[in-house]
Simulated assay, not measured.
Amino acid sequence: MSQGYFITGTDTGIGKTWSTISLMQYFKNQGQTVLGMKPIASGCDQVDGCLRNEDALLIQRQASLILPYEDVNPYAFALAVSPHIAAEQAGVEIDLDNIVEKYQQIEKLADVVLVEGVGGWLVPLNAQEDVADLALKLDLPVIVVVGIRLGCINQAKLTFAAIQQSGVQCHGWIASCIDREMLMLDENIQTLCQSTEMPLLAVLSYMEKLDPECFSREVRAKL
């Protein structure tokens, strides 16, 4: 059976996809076959008559095997809004069991499967369930991506506490340096290290362009 990880974050737009891609490259460099999923995506574009998400396409291309797009991203929505609203507007209900079934099919094909969540830990997915419920149903250890910018300490500590309360296993966290002008960058990261027992897995430096090979070398803890 493959090893899986669920990638969540402190917010949207803080580097979850780039972190996922970097981790995929890290495992590929170890000679493992790697697949990825972004089960739910808002803000998709029409490509040849089908909705496609830029981040999901990156994950699809980074994989060791090319999966059908619908396996990587079963729920794609045009509106760039919270997924439960986007789904309602599209006349669709996000079924977490369907995502789990997709994952169970995919995990048979690879040594490692990374599943990227949407938004933050408590983003609603339907009327009753949120991202935390999806992680629980998948029963995967969680990796938290923290966007290092002003306000990140509060967001990270709230996210760490919510994950701990949910009872899932947290494998560690990644510092995603998304603000080029961030003051006291190292001090912020050190403060977060001191505020949680979750290990710091990687510090992903600020970059204008995604470089998975470079990022993969910044993974500092064994996965």
Rank of each mutant, 00 (worst) to 15 (best):
C193D: 02
D130C: 13
V100A: 10
I14C: 03
K137N: 07
S205I: 05
V146E: 08
A135W: 07
D97W: 05
Q104W: 01
S2K: 05
R180M: 14
R61P: 00
T10A: 07
L23K: 01
C214W: 05
A86S: 15
E107P: 01
L150P: 02
L65P: 03
I21K: 04
K209C: 09
Q194L: 14
R217G: 02
D211N: 15
D48C: 05
V113G: 07
L134S: 09
A175W: 09
T159M: 08
T159G: 12
L192Q: 10
I66D: 09
I21V: 15
G151T: 02
W18C: 13
G172C: 08
I106W: 01
C214G: 08
I21A: 05
L185E: 14
T17S: 08
V123C: 12
L65Y: 12
I85G: 01
A41W: 01
S176I: 07
G13W: 00
V145L: 03
V47M: 04
V72P: 04
E197I: 11
D55C: 01
S22D: 03
D48F: 03
Q104P: 02
V168H: 05
G13L: 04
T196E: 10
Y75H: 03
R52C: 03
I189M: 06
F215I: 04
D179R: 08
V146Y: 04
I66S: 14
E54A: 11
L134A: 13
P83D: 06
S42A: 12
G4C: 09
E101W: 11
E181H: 14
